[in-house]
Amino acid sequence: MNAPFAPPAMTATADTWTVAGRTFSSRLIVGTGKYKDYAQNAAAAEAAGAEIVTVAVRRVNLTDPNQPMLVDYVKPDRFTFLPNTAGCFTGEDAVRTLRLAREAGGWDLVKLEVLSNTAHLYPDMIETLRALDLLIRDGFQVMVYCTDDVVMCRRLEEAGAAAIMPAAAPIGSGLGLQNRVNIRLIVEQATVPVLVDAGVGTPSDATLAMELGCDAVLMNTAIAEAKDPILMASAMKHAVIAGREGYLAGRMAKRMYADPSSPLAGLI
């Protein structure tokens, strides 16, 4: 006897996330630094399934105007460009850099990072908060790289940040999520997207961030410095999806002792 065929529900809402009015399906944002060349960079971004890529703003090379350019490989009509302020140490530097980015591509969605010290690259949060205010007054929608300080993250949101992006560990360190308690608390209090930005080293690090309820993960070095960046990009894509689905599914409760999965009754 055939059971009545039940088609899969076609009305299930897609699992998307929205930042500053823009909606995305991919929860993996990738950087575009440190690759062997721009062609490998573009292939990795595709393999990651990324919809957003971070980019930096720098002086052109005056001695060789025909050098390959990022936009010829990682194309702005394929990816949403998220210009960053990497290398900026003051609010004024950040505003100047992002005004140039806006002129170069017209984007107002930006990533703010105001650094303090080149040894650890942690952001100067007092200056970050000031820079955020300057950028918002200038019409930018600002995703903010920050420390995993729960109170400071609250302040950023109150000041108008479009997304809160705490570091899992120092930029480029690959050390993985160092303080899962703080990340969970930041996720719980936020009403704007929370992304782990920086410090991810392995796919399991990305999964953990997503299991804690982050809306997305941003990474660069973990992919670019893998032996096979394209394969690692694909691994990260799956890791982010796994963590997201695990978060949505809701994990089992922890127990202090074992609990058998096979029935105890009916043993021979």
Binding site: A56, V57, R58, L62, L70, P83, L100, A198, N220
Partner: peptide, 10 residues
């Protein structure tokens, strides 16, 4: 004058 472009970055 400053003349800038987008380059790879994280």
């Amino acid at each position: 004058i400053e003349l800038v472009q987008f380059v790879g970055g994280g």
